[in-house]
Design a protein around this nucleic acid. Structure first.
Length: 825
RNA sequence: GCGAGAGUGGCGGAAUGGCAGACGCGCUGGAUUUAGGUUCCAGUGCCCUCGGGCGUAGGGGUUCGACUCCCCUCUCUCGCACCA
């Protein structure tokens, strides 16, 4: 009966590569995956994957991220949605420039040839992109609008230039945003970051700190919690008070920021950030100028890495000056130290050693007094060396004695305000976004510097400000902008006065480019603006955004900021760009991230050559939940390939059999139950479990075909449903199945299979009978059985009687139709 | 240090508070094959006196019932790290 199954190799065997070659041109001709026009009446869904950076060919990480995104896109299409699933490239950036310097090719040449390779790989990998959307951020047609958007920010006062100490990567010879410094090292090249005092462009993202924080309630539940937490921590809002301290010999008081105004009576000294202008000012005339100068030099030489060391001893220097504690009039010494940051709060603090560990460490190092003003019930910090930061009752605090912490914060703040010596205040960890870069391969900043007019915006009609030909500039990193080395490009007429002026020679951080690409996708050829407002209204916000967690703060925070600004400019009508976010895990090998030095790299192309596209996709999607890492050493593309081949053989047997009149109700039931379950699993992104259910169904089809023959109608029904469902995960194999079952292409134009609850319903269910929580019997009962009948049935069971022995039944929990628990003793 | 998350067979992983280990990998045995591979069948948490007993990092709690909820401890991963 199973001859064909026993000897499949004798006829033909599944050749996944041949299937790929067969169907790809057919799909291209059918122009699948194209988003509908403005008049399309289907409900819309925007499915987005974080666009790739064109460094070499696609790798395993791309395969994972895009396979996951593709399932969502294909599912939405089959559910009748008009789907936008675009693709483009984040094609400006340092690696192109470094490769160009190394190999003597132009950055554009390197970039665009890599893009072509990746595009070709994506195409063969079968991702359901609408290729008409294809964009590259390094195209003048794109960066023209990046510049246009910059100018709108500039007009709003949201883009500005200032001199300040900035993060400097000595290897890449460029400045970095705070977000690009990871543990004191450059995000790109891992070099230890140092500080430089430079005049740079910034976006005023801090102005949006509250909205970036507060609007996150919209994302709760549809973004991963850890991403929301990371953004909250990064923005780092704290509330407290500004308090003015009079300084001896200075006309103006100095304001400090504190979250603990309740501890004001315990302030025994005052600290200013050593690298702040205030420190230099206060040091002058204090009699300790030489000490300060030496200390400042030492601080400047320290790298962030050194500053970040946890067990670092507190250092500082007395400035020979004194401040007055506004609440008790005490005269307290002023120190400069590097544990106070120049760019947070006001760059100066009141030090309360009893209730702040850092202040206590400093006080102990410099032998300064420690006065506890909150009784927390713990031992005296002056003795233990451990600051008490918890709640308690105020002491040594004059009129505030006896109050609790929260009450005291309110009262003291109110009193300070009344006396004019302070105010309630909010502070953020977030700093403004430093966006200028001293490199070539980026979007030029559309500003001209004129000796008589100052900063002048390049008029919109003169955009784009194009990059000069790379052969006309010096690309080598030297700490100044390569663009400045071409005088023909640099020197221009001032757009305002017509006099001689120079272009701003810096380029923008590539995160500016990627902060709005998803808007451009909605109308990629639009030439009257960065995007067609109407098209964006139709598609945005993004329904499903897939990408790596490495952008939890960077790209996602910047994009959220952009959308809020565009909302204020009246260009978009929503305030959050990405309604739902999925962070896929990484593909690792043998427990570690793949790397050249470890020699544990797995090449995507060689895996594809060995197993085929579908087997690689199924391997990735079946390995575990999408957000978990995949260790390639733990998974089996061979196993995935075998399953696909089993499906393929089934399709041959069933496709060539003529239908019997006898059916298999059990298989029909399983088919409909599987459709129901897989539908729910796909919607929950539980792709690994969905595939497991499909495998179970294929096993059942095999059993039916072997037992009753391939002509069983239920077998065909099951395999047709399976082909449609499998099309999300293994598009080529699904098309093979569809074709071998006698259908015209394409399975990808089919509707998602519908399930019939009447067929899926079980006539009986297995009820577990427990005695004291242990399973003692199983009963087949109708699903509609009531609690009482079930209890009667369970108590009648012979095995239950045996298990009960001479115990008395105390209680019966009857939960029809699945469980009865008999409590006895 | 602070914050978040996670610990289930040899492995990847399943389980609205209700049969722990679905599905797969691997392994063992068998069939087919000249052989290898493929394919197919059976078995596969641990212990057992074959009646069962024990099992979801460890300890406690809530519950008729806990991988699931609560508390403590341990381990691991990730994020932040002098933010006053």
């Amino acid at each position: 009966m199973r001859e064909s199954a026993d000897h499949p190799a004798d006829e033909e065997s599944y050749d996944p590569q041949a299937a790929q070659e067969r169907w790809l041109p057919v799909w291209d001709k059918l122009a699948l995956n194209q988003a509908g026009s403005a008049s399309d009446e289907r409900p819309r869904k925007y499915i987005l994957d974080m666009f790739p950076y064109p460094s070499g060919d696609l790798h395993m990480g791309h395969a994972e991220a895009f396979s996951i995104g593709d399932v969502g896109a294909r599912y939405a299409m089959m559910r009748g949605f008009d789907v936008l699933h675009p693709i483009g490239w984040d094609s400006f950036g340092l690696p192109a420039e470094n490769a160009a310097i190394k190999r003597g090719m132009s950055p554009a040449e390197w970039t665009y040839s890599n893009i072509d390779v990746q595009a070709d790989s994506f195409h063969r990998f079968g991702i359901s992109f609408d290729w008409r959307t294809r964009l590259h951020t390094s195209d003048p047609e794109y960066y023209r609008w990046t510049q246009w958007l910059f100018l709108r920010f500039y007009e709003k006062g949201l883009a500005y230039r200032k001199a300040s100490p900035v993060n400097w990567c000595p290897n890449d010879q460029t400045v970095l945003a705070n977000e690009q410094v990871i543990g004191g090292r450059c995000e790109r090249c891992d070099a230890v970051v140092t500080k430089r005092n430079l005049t740079q462009w910034y976006f005023r993202i801090t102005q949006y700190a509250d909205r970036l924080l507060d609007d996150m309630v919209q994302l709760e539940g549809s973004w991963p919690d850890r991403v929301l937490t990371m953004q909250r921590n990064w923005i780092g809002r704290s509330t407290g008070a500004h308090v003015d301290f009079a300084i001896e010999g200075r006309a103006e008081p100095v304001t400090v920021y504190t979250t603990r105004p309740d501890t004001l009576y315990g302030a025994t000294f005052f600290v200013v950030a050593a690298d702040s202008a205030l420190a230099t000012e206060l040091a002058a005339g204090g009699g300790h100028e030489a000490d300060f100068a030496a200390y400042l030099e030492q601080v400047r030489l320290a790298t962030d890495i050194e500053r970040l060391a946890t067990d670092r001893v507190k250092t500082g220097v007395f400035l020979g000056r004194h401040a007055t504690n506004p609440v008790n009039g005490e005269r307290i010494p002023i120190y400069a130290a590097d544990y106070v940051l120049a760019d947070y709060g006001t760059g100066a603090i009141m030090a309360v050693p009893a209730h702040d560990q850092r202040d206590l460490d400093f006080a102990r190092a410099f032998d300064l007094p420690v006065v506890a003003v909150i009784d927390t019930g713990l031992e005296d910090p002056a003795v233990t060396g451990i600051a008490t930061v918890g709640d308690g009752v105020l002491v040594n605090s004059g009129p505030y004695d006896g109050l609790r912490k929260a009450e005291a914060i309110d009262r003291i703040t109110t009193d300070l305000v009344a006396r004019g010596g302070g105010s309630a205040a909010v502070n953020y960890r977030l700093r403004d976004w430093l966006l200028s870069r001293q490199r070539y391969w980026g979007c030029p900043i559309p500003i001209v510097h004129c000796p008589s007019c100052g900063e002048v915006a390049v008029p919109d009609e003169q955009l784009p400000v194009r990059l000069p030909d790379p052969t006309t500039v010096d690309l080598r990193p030297k700490g100044t902008s390569p663009l400045a080395s071409n005088p023909d490009w640099l020197n221009v007429e001032c757009p305002k006065c017509g006099g001689p002026a120079t272009r701003d020679a810096d380029t923008m951080d590539t995160f500016v480019d990627s902060s709005w690409y998803y808007l451009r996708y909605c109308s990629p050829d639009y030439s009257d603006g960065p995007f067609d407002v109407e098209a964006v209204r139709r598609w945005m916000p993004v329904a499903q955004y897939t990408g790596g967690v490495e952008h939890a703060i960077l790209h996602l925070l910047y994009s959220r900021f952009f959308i809020k600004v565009l909302h204020d400019l009246g260009m978009v009508d929503f305030i959050e760009p990405f309604s739902s976010l999925l962070n896929q895990g990484q593909v690792i090998n043998q427990g570690k991230a793949m790397s050249k030095s470890l020699g544990n790299g797995v090449e995507l192309q060689s895996e594809l050559a060995a197993y085929g596209v579908d087997a690689v996709r199924v391997t990735i999607l079946f390995a575990g939940p999408p957000e978990e890492d995949i260790d390639w050493a733990d998974v089996s593309p061979t196993g995935a390939g075998k399953w696909l081949a089993r499906l393929w053989r089934l399709s041959g047997e069933i496709g060539s059999a003529s239908a019997f009149s006898v059916d298999d109700d059990g298989l029909r039931k399983l088919t409909h139950q599987t459709i129901d379950e897989v539908t729910r699993l796909v919607e929950l992104f539980r792709y690994n479990v969905a595939i497991a259910r499909l495998m179970s169904l294929s096993n059942a089809i095999r059993t039916t075909v072997d037992k009753s023959g391939a002509g069983t109608p239920a077998a065909r029904e099951a395999l047709e449903a399976l082909a449609k469902m499998v099309s999300l995960f293994a598009p080529y194999t699904a098309e093979e199945l569809w074709s071998r079952l006698g259908h015209e292409p394409s399975v990808h134009q089919q509707s998602w299979p519908s399930f019939d609850p009447l067929i899926a319903a079980n006539d009986t269910v297995t009820c577990v009978v427990q005695v004291n929580g242990k399973v003692r019997d199983r009963l087949e009962v109708p699903p509609s059985i009531d609690a009482e009948s079930l209890q009667t049935l369970a108590l009648a069971s012979a095995t239950v009687h045996k298990a009960l022995g001479d115990m008395a039944v105390r209680q019966v929990i009857s939960r029809p139709p699945r469980l009865v628990n008999i409590v006895a003793g």
